[in-house]
C-alpha cells in the first residue's frame, strides 16, 4: 500500500501546483502554487486600422506573458478616445467584456474578427502613418503604455499590408 501512495501523492501535488497557477485569478493567493511566479508581460504587434467612422475605431495587439502566473487585462485608456472598451466577437455579435485573461506562459491575442479594442468618442480621426497612445491596465501587473501605429484600413498582420 505504501509503495502505491508515492506516485499518487506526486500526481496530486502536481495538480495543486497547476491549480495555484491557473487559479490566481480567483483573488486568493493562499495556495502554495502562487509563490512560484508572477506575470511578466510584454505587448507587441499593436496596430489600429485607419477607421472609416469619425466616431469609432478598433485596435489590436498581442500580450505575451513569460511569467508563471496569469493576469487579466482589465481596462484601457487612450489619448484619442473618450472611451476604450474590450470586446469579444461571438458569431456576428460584438460583446463588451470586463476583462481578458493573459495565461501564464501564454498569450492574449487581439485580432480582427476576434477580441479587439473598441475606441469610442474619438477626439480626432486617426490617419494612416500616425500613432495613438494606449495605456493597458492589468489586475496584477503595472500599466503598460503602447504606441499603436495607425495602418491602412485593409491592413492584415499576416500579409503586412
Amino acid at each position: 500500500m505504501r509503495r502505491r501512495l508515492g506516485p499518487a501523492a506526486l500526481v496530486l501535488a502536481g495538480a495543486l501546483a497547476l491549480a495555484g497557477c491557473g487559479g490566481s485569478d480567483s483573488g486568493s493567493d493562499s495556495g502554495s502554487g502562487s509563490a512560484d511566479g508572477k506575470a511578466e508581460l510584454s505587448v507587441g504587434s499593436a496596430y489600429m486600422p485607419q477607421p472609416v467612422s469619425d466616431e469609432m475605431a478598433a485596435g489590436f495587439f498581442t500580450v505575451t506573458n513569460k511569467g508563471g502566473a496569469a493576469d487579466e487585462l482589465t481596462s484601457v485608456t487612450s489619448d484619442v478616445a473618450g472611451q476604450v472598451t474590450v470586446h469579444e466577437t461571438v458569431g456576428g455579435a460584438m460583446r463588451e467584456v470586463k476583462d481578458l485573461k493573459v495565461p501564464a506562459h501564454g498569450e492574449l491575442v487581439l485580432k480582427s474578427g476576434g477580441d479587439h479594442l473598441m475606441f469610442e468618442q474619438l477626439k480626432r480621426k486617426p490617419k494612416e502613418g500616425q500613432t495613438v497612445t494606449v495605456e493597458l491596465r492589468f489586475a496584477r501587473s503595472g500599466p503598460v503604455k503602447v504606441e499603436m501605429p495607425v495602418k491602412s484600413a485593409t491592413y492584415h498582420p499576416k500579409t503586412g499590408h
Binding site: P51, V52, S53, A57, A58, S112, H116, M118, T154
Partner: peptide, 17 residues
C-alpha cells in the same frame, strides 16, 4: 452596420481596395 469598429469596415475596405 456602421457602429461596428472591426469587421464591417475592414470587410468593406478590403473590397473597395
Amino acid at each position: 452596420y456602421t457602429h461596428c469598429p472591426d469587421v464591417c469596415p475592414s470587410t468593406m475596405s478590403n473590397i473597395a481596395v
